[in-house]
Amino acid sequence: MLQEKIGGEAAVDARALVKTFGDKRAVDGVSLTVPAGSIFGLLGPNGAGKTTTLRMLLGIIDPDSGTRSLLGHTQPLDASSEVGYLPEERGLYPAMNPREAIAFMGALRGLPLAEGRRRASVLLAERGLADWEKKPIRSLSKGMAQTVQLLGTLVHKPRLIVLDEPFSGLDAINQEKLEALIRAEAADGATVIFSTHVIAHAERLCERIAIIAGGKVAFAGAVDDARDRLRPVVRLQTRAEDGAWRAALPPGARQVGREWRFELPEGGPEPLLRALIDGGAGIDTLSIERPGLHDAFVAIAGASAAAAMGEGAPE
């Protein structure tokens, strides 16, 4: 597979990564290319191998076999000062205040403490948390504490931001704020990789995704390419309940209440419309909808993988 590039480089390039723990192969030949400046999602159920893959990409653990490069470094830890990483397991010192916590996390990436404190105050003020900057972490809500840890991930202005299940445990308002923050970082030129088991986040945010199931990559590419694997869906309501128009419906058409749902036939909408009108259907409503990422995920990874993610069938 040719290396895909945006702006002349790939932020992450991995080939045939394998990792086994005991008798379980957690990652089985994963290959990924993440274009610089993109928002890239690792999508799959818990236990699919997403976290292990991220840790290998970052050099936290080494693969049993395979290669990876990070921001041009074949040894990922050489790029650590340019990386911001939010692990799935959150952790802050409860007695530390937000400003010091953010500055401390920046210092771990080489940012001087004084500059870290200055940037922390700015970041907290921008999010309406200035009054909390010197209060102990233990007094913050879960959402606020997670925001502090995220700001600590970003304070040193990394070129690559890696977020492992960042939306976990956040309410809808804080999820929206996090999505806005991810978009802002990408707009400023950072590459963002995040793992999730919630398809809606990936569909709203990502330009490219990798669907991982059972430690393997089932699909890697543009979100639009994943959706284009399925034909558009027609939703039809008619005044007539029966008649010659029924012959225009494909064999897989199903009725839900008054509405018929089926894939758009190969000939496109014009022959379908003509057959419905000539057959006396009396069209009340007809819409043609592009399949969503949920439908593509089910087609690629299977209904069992979607169920493991808590994703029910769409209406």
Results as ranks from 00 to 15, higher is better:
290 R>F: 10
258 R>A: 14
211 I>A: 07
254 R>F: 04
216 K>D: 08
257 G>D: 11
246 R>S: 11
231 R>E: 11
258 R>G: 14
220 A>T: 14
252 G>K: 00
238 T>W: 02
258 R>N: 14
290 R>S: 14
279 G>N: 10
265 P>T: 06
258 R>D: 15
239 R>T: 14
292 G>A: 09
287 S>E: 13
267 G>E: 14
206 C>P: 12
255 Q>L: 11
258 R>F: 12
231 R>K: 10
218 A>F: 00
258 R>L: 12
291 P>K: 04
290 R>D: 14
218 A>D: 00
239 R>H: 14
299 A>G: 12
270 E>C: 00
223 V>A: 02
278 D>S: 06
228 D>F: 00
212 I>S: 08
265 P>G: 06
292 G>M: 06
215 G>A: 00
296 A>V: 05
299 A>R: 06
265 P>S: 01
204 R>K: 10
213 A>Q: 06
228 D>G: 08
219 F>P: 10
276 L>R: 07
249 L>F: 09
251 P>H: 01
250 P>N: 03
210 A>Q: 07
274 R>W: 01
234 V>R: 05
248 A>E: 06
279 G>D: 08
271 P>H: 06
264 L>A: 09
225 D>I: 03
285 T>C: 07
231 R>T: 11
239 R>I: 10
267 G>D: 15
287 S>W: 08
210 A>C: 07
229 R>M: 08
206 C>E: 08
220 A>E: 15
295 D>L: 03
238 T>I: 09
297 F>G: 05
242 D>I: 00
237 Q>D: 14
273 L>F: 12
292 G>T: 15
288 I>T: 12
294 H>P: 14
236 L>S: 04
263 E>L: 08
294 H>W: 07
213 A>Y: 05
231 R>S: 13
239 R>E: 13
264 L>M: 13
257 G>C: 10
224 D>T: 15
267 G>Y: 06
228 D>W: 00
298 V>E: 09
278 D>R: 05
268 G>C: 03
214 G>V: 02
273 L>C: 09
285 T>M: 04
253 A>M: 00
284 D>T: 12
242 D>K: 05
213 A>C: 12
233 V>G: 07
273 L>Q: 11
222 A>E: 15
264 L>Y: 07
249 L>T: 04
269 P>I: 12
289 E>Q: 13
283 I>W: 06
237 Q>E: 15
210 A>H: 12
286 L>I: 14
269 P>T: 11
278 D>M: 02
275 A>S: 14
262 F>N: 04
297 F>Q: 02
277 I>T: 12
252 G>W: 00
213 A>I: 00
288 I>P: 12
277 I>M: 04
211 I>R: 09
204 R>T: 05
249 L>V: 03
206 C>K: 02
269 P>N: 02
220 A>P: 07
284 D>W: 01
275 A>Q: 13
203 E>K: 03
254 R>E: 09
244 A>I: 02
299 A>P: 13
274 R>E: 13
234 V>N: 06
235 R>M: 07
206 C>H: 05
219 F>V: 00
234 V>G: 09
256 V>T: 12
255 Q>M: 05
234 V>Q: 08
285 T>N: 11
237 Q>H: 12
227 R>V: 13
227 R>G: 00
292 G>P: 14
297 F>V: 05
